[in-house]
């Protein structure tokens, strides 16, 4: 399952993300709004689901080399966060749905928490 396939399957709004990053295969998933937990728990190539949209989200995604970030519950990106995501090329995907709903759908697509 690639980033592009997730975007299509879940009908996500793509805020950022370079073309070469959209074909990346997702290794697993992680969901938390505490960035300290994400830094300890998410793995290379994971999709991360959160409702946080702070600029540090981009820094953490970049640090861990995550495949993409899905930001839930209609949270919008501010200019600073958007700018950093563009600069790093990281796919940031937006949805009105809750984290629970998004994770359920990812699970149905075969994405697992283990990595």
């Amino acid at each position: 399952m690639t980033v592009q396939e997730i975007i299509s399957a879940l009908g996500l709004e793509q805020a950022t993300g370079d073309a070469d990053r959209l074909v990346r295969v997702i290794t697993g998933g992680y969901a938390s709004d505490l960035l300290s937990c994400v830094m300890a728990g998410a793995a290379d190539g994971n999709v991360w689901v959160t409702l946080q949209a702070h600029p540090n989200v981009i820094a953490v995604a970049d640090l861990l080399n995550l495949a993409c970030v899905i930001i839930t519950e209609g949270t919008r990106l501010d200019e600073e966060t958007l700018g950093r995501a563009r600069e790093k090329g990281i796919p940031v995907l937006l949805t009105e749905e809750t984290t629970f709903t998004v994770v359920s759908k990812l699970a149905e697509l075969g994405i697992r928490g283990e990595h």
Binding site: D33, L34, L35, S36, V38, Q52, P55, N56, A59
Partner: peptide, 8 residues
């Protein structure tokens, strides 16, 4: 630090 991982 817990919420944002590190000092912005």
């Amino acid at each position: 630090l817990t919420s944002l991982g590190f000092m912005p």
